[in-house]
């Protein structure tokens, strides 16, 4: 079994607070791995590092064998790289102008300065993979952004639901599909056959996903009008829409009643068996964690205090202490 994700000695510090300290962590392919720990243990911070929202203070995240996230290095060099080519052209223009070139040459020089500046700036903003590789040649490393992680194959949900509240359930799932759709703005403007075909296919697939989440009948309702449990499942459906390899679920059963929880647990199990997903779960409900996890990692005060099968973890004295406090306390 290969590892989908490997967190190497990840540390995150917020000012004086050490939120995550030197955590080593792997997720094997096809597994359901859970991350548990008391409140404030650093689970969500760790999760957000993996999802590309924070840069770690130290350490790195390897996703599908590639280093994706680490502390950025020489980030100041990047804007310089944008400006230098344009300045070079500008300088050449000035020199040529001083040497007595014609107005047309100077105009062309200005034109190319502007174009050069624009191209590098737009490339810098879009950050395609080739550009990232180019930057590494100058020793510049920038972590993958959340959207880059999605493109690489990571889907996530949020602890406090973050749906696009005023869009329909269907549109939410369609947004989730964004990174897998190819229609450009030009396709959309011209309403090309390709665009129309893709859009129809996307809709059909979105309906399938809603079906999987048990929301087919509610596809056209505004997301914020859905009941709580449905919103949670819609968020999962939206995360699935990008065809992820690894799905991060941040407390998916928080605030659910026992029946909803049981349904969701079943759904998570189906995601693995039917879609072959690897899942990382942050969860408070121990029945859920112990029921479906292959492996459980326990964090406390930002440090990994235990790891193993659910049974091993359950018996680990350190874990019991972390959750119940020391006998003296």
């Amino acid at each position: 079994m290969t590892d989908v994700l490997h967190a190497v000695n990840v540390t995150k510090r917020f000012g004086g607070l050490l939120a995550v300290h030197d955590v080593e962590f792997t997720i094997p392919e096809g597994a359901i791995v859970s991350l548990i720990g008391p409140n404030g243990a650093g689970k969500t911070t760790f999760f957000n590092i993996i999802a590309g929202i924070y840069d770690p203070t130290a350490g790195e995240i390897r996703f599908r064998g590639k280093r994706m996230i680490a502390r950025s290095r020489r980030a100041w060099l990047e804007p310089l790289l944008w400006v230098v080519p344009a300045l070079a052209v500008a300088l050449t223009t000035v020199l040529v102008g001083e040497a007595g070139a014609s107005d047309i040459v100077i105009a062309l020089g200005i034109f190319f300065t502007v174009i050069a500046l624009m191209i590098v700036m737009v490339v810098g903003v879009a950050r395609p993979p080739a550009y990232a590789d180019f930057l590494t040649r100058f020793g510049v490393f920038r972590s993958a952004r959340p959207n880059d992680m999605v493109v690489a194959g990571l889907g996530r949900t949020f602890q406090n639901i973050r749906l696009f509240a005023n869009m329909s359930a269907l549109d939410n799932v369609l947004v989730g599909m964004h990174s897998r759709l190819k229609a450009t703005w030009l396709d959309a403007l011209l309403s090309t056959p390709r665009d129309r075909r893709e859009e129809a296919e996307a809709r059909a697939r979105a309906m399938q996903l809603l079906d999987l989440a048990g929301l087919r009948k509610r596809a056209h309702e505004t997301a914020k009008n859905l009941p709580y449990g449905d919103q949670r499942r819609l968020e999962i459906a939206r995360a699935l829409a990008s065809n992820p390899v690894l799905l991060l679920l941040d407390e998916p059963t928080a605030g659910m009643n026992p029946r909803e929880t049981a349904d969701l647990t079943k759904l998570i199990g189906r995601l693995r068996t039917e879609l072959g997903l690897t899942i990382l779960l942050i969860e408070h409900d121990m029945r859920v964690v112990m029921g479906i996890s292959d492996r459980v990692t326990v964090l406390d005060h930002g440090e990994r205090i235990a790891e193993g099968t659910p049974d091993e973890v359950r018996r680990d004295p350190k874990v019991i202490e972390a959750y119940l406090g020391t006998p003296a306390a």
Partner: peptide, 19 residues
């Protein structure tokens, strides 16, 4: 859809693969 998603919640939009 991507525009509207950004307007609604920029972070969630990024977490759903929108550049």
């Amino acid at each position: 859809r991507a525009w509207m998603a950004i307007r609604e919640d920029e972070l969630a939009a990024a977490a759903n693969g929108i550049n």
